[in-house]
Design a protein around this nucleic acid. Sequence first.
DNA 1: ACATTAACTGTTA
DNA 2: TAACAGTTAATGT
Length: 204
Amino acid sequence: MKTISCMKIDEDLLRSNGGEIRNYNSKDFIFRSGDKPLYYWQIIEGNVKLNHYNEDGKEFIHNILGENQSFGDSCLFVDKTYPMNAFTLSPCTVIKLPKNKLFSILEEYPDISLELNSCLSHRVYYKMIMIQSIASANPAIRIKGLMNYLKSFQDDCSAFSFPVRLTRQQIADLTGLRVETVIRTLKKMEKENSLKFEKRVIFF
DNA sequence: ACATTAACTGTTA
DNA sequence: TAACAGTTAATGT
């Protein structure tokens, strides 16, 4: 069985089953914390972040998704409101499919159902890794956890093959660190040879 | 707009 | 008490 790290349902199939294309400007909310999950969302173009704010207003980013990635899927299988916001980081084109239509597709196409299982499992697996690293007091371990997670979506596993296309601030918000700590730690990690820079872009 | 540095503060191993 | 993460602010790309 092949393992799928990233869910993508064929766009035509989505459209012929009630999927709707929606366009968003940059810095729009697609949904907010507390909303009821009613749709399966898949990105055609652009970037979406999933985040929430803690009690003192500090942002925590759960994930940043791009082209061909779905988001919020797991909430469709849980009878609860979203615990996070979906916020566009760039102009976005997404396709949304009503929850019941997704379930029909999953019944009709067992292979897609299996893929979704595989994808969700991948996400859960790496969430566990992320929790373990974020629980560490060591910032290098937190950052490595994040980078291994992000790299797991790409096929090339070799060293320094993955360009981390995140700002230092985003890395900070994904790991619960401060930008300055991220910068200091990245430099340390470069010296330890666990990553390298090519004109400010991180290669992991 | 994002990245870096420096100087300082507070916490903790 | 030395190391190190966070804070603030100024500066560089």
